[in-house]
Design a protein around this nucleic acid. Structure first.
Lengths: 345, 345
DNA sequence: CTGTTAGCGCGTTCAG
DNA sequence: CTGAACGCGCTAACAG
């Protein structure tokens, strides 16, 4: 049988209460002599308190849940690491949940996490039409922070990237060239990211006095394949024997790097030169972006920081502090590499 | 306050025991009528049992721990997904821990996981010189499976890739060309993978009647940078004005894809053609391997399956069944892409 | 078929 | 400064 707190109490000739006090470093109520003696026994027996019993008695688990769509998406590992690092340092453990963006799975996970008694939840869910998962959390007063997910009219805690501004940066660069015929490779339409990035693009169109329909929007799904297929089709549908000059587009802005890389593959297959014939900008700045050839120009987001910030915010909430602002907004940056040309000068 | 089992017991006019019975779908001991009635109350109140109390009473948590070096390494996400998928289907949750290959961290994680009362642990630790973490597990009889980590003379449960055979596959292909001057880019020497892959390479050397020192071994650390640096140095150190013919090597076998990709970058910087001037094979077959240019030839391992198999094995152990074999060995496959030439024919 | 009773291991009053 | 006693919410053994 496992060794318990009363075992050492007996062994030390004291009561469980006293052992508990030194176990939790309570300054009050134990003489230095006894304290040291008990600590010694604790150490040499390698005693480990039961998290169950502790949780039951205190209502605290020192573990939190992180729900993301899919760890297999190269955007997430760094984010997860950011979360785990600050959590671990603070003495918390992490439940990892892959929702696949499925609202049902997400709800199930939330339920399970609450059963486990997590002290808080970080939720990165891209869909925003149903918030029933949040209701569960609210009901039980479990603190949570939203990661990169905007819910209109709501005032939850969250950390976000300024997606709209990121898109503006990219769009301004691309639309700076005259006679720019731009394709926007959109991500899943229900994702707030896709919407915001499109909105940023439209901002720039307005800035430049261009019609909103002057660009072409292709609907993808954030995968390499969809980027490749979409651009491949756009290329196939043009006139045979068309020269590069007559390309139906000369710039692509993709909602994420994966689609941008897919687009590059299609372009390459058709022997279209990047960035000479068409310029290309992605979004996310995943590690892969630096490794493709030519290296992908993209809008970078501080992924690790998004994870760490959200964990910090959550810990704040768990400790009952009210952070000054309910949301943390991180800034994107345009990273120009090999798939864009330098403009002007 | 949270709603408890006695609340519904009261509400239904029965005892806690009865509620517990329907909660756990115990076939015995509850009339169909009462059962239905209680279930109804359960549903409409949205009652959720406390995992703490349950764990305390049963000694079971329905959660397991997974310790890996670093989720940020592109090899792991798929593996983690494999684990999580089968776990989730079986009603288990996953604690994710990043050890950074640090034995101290690893031990700490094991300790914490045991405090949380995990039902089992999957451990992917590359170092094998100290097994104190395992002792902890053994002491408390917590089932665990080793992932891709061989401990000599031990007979723990585990799932492994046949690393040695994988290296043989690659080495045979490379050494089939006559006058092959091979560089082996080794991973961290203390990793069992590195050792086994080197051993496989040496197997082939013996097969071919070649001296073990007829190849050059460079010591890397599994990172892109180390591959790039090492090969860069090897290239810089040759005579100036040397032609491609006089390259000090014409084939590279890297212990992992990341180093292989780094090597490719160095080669490209020196305008050395792959695979014409030097052939290159990596190991792992991470997603990136298909995306570099030219696509990387490599030894693939069934990463997802390694995760899922290890989870299955662990669940087996948790359920007290004795699997037929203590270890599952998965087979690697040589995937020839753009960084190797076809031989003979 | 159902209710009663007794812990699971720990934290936490409240007396002493 | 210390200990006895209770309760956290649930399961399990035992009666009825």
């Amino acid at each position: 049988m496992k060794i318990t707190i009363s075992d050492i109490a007996k062994q030390a000739g004291v009561s469980k209460a006293t052992v508990s006090r030194v176990l939790n470093n309570r300054p009050e109520g134990v003489g230095a002599d006894k304290r040291a003696q008990i600590q010694a026994i604790l150490d040499e027996t390698g005693f480990q308190p039961s998290g169950f019993a502790r949780g039951l008695a205190t209502g605290v688990s020192h573990s939190i849940g992180l729900i993301i769509p899919n760890i297999t998406n190269p955007f997430y590992p760094l984010l997860v690491r950011g979360v785990e690092d600050v959590l671990n340092r603070a003495g918390y453990s992490l439940f990892l949940c892959n929702s696949d963006g499925d609202i049902t799975k997400e709800k199930d996970y939330v339920r399970v996490l609450m059963e486990k008694g997590v002290d808080g939840v970080i939720l990165n869910s891209a869909v925003s039409d149903c918030d029933c998962q949040l209701d569960l959390l609210e009901d039980q007063q479990v603190p949570y922070v939203l990661l990169d997910r905007i819910i209109e009219g709501q005032t939850q805690f969250g950390v976000f990237l300024d997606n709209r501004e990121g898109a503006r940066l990219a769009a301004r660069h691309l639309l700076a060239q005259k006679d720019c015929r731009l394709i926007y490779l959109n991500g899943p339409a229900e994702h707030s990211q896709s919407k915001l990035r499109l909105a940023g693009l439209e901002d720039v169109l307005r800035e430049k006095g261009l019609a909103l329909h002057s660009i072409r929007i292709l609907q993808g799904d954030d995968s390499i394949l969809s980027g490749k297929t979409l651009i491949g089709e756009a290329l196939d549908s043009r006139q045979p024997n068309a020269s590069a000059d007559s390309l139906p587009f000369n710039a692509i802005f993709a909602c994420n790097d994966l689609m941008a890389i897919g687009a590059m593959q299609a372009l390459k297959q058709h022997s279209i030169k990047v960035p000479e014939d068409v310029q290309l900008i992605g979004f996310d700045d995943i590690e892969l972006a630096q490794l493709v050839e030519p290296a992908l120009s993209t809008v970078s987001q501080p992924t690790f920081e998004m994870g760490s910030k959200s964990a910090e915010l959550l810990l704040y909430l768990i400790n009952g502090k009210k952070p000054r602002t309910k949301t943390v907004t991180l800034k994107p940056a345009l990273v120009l590499r090999g798939t864009t040309r330098h403009i002007g000068h």
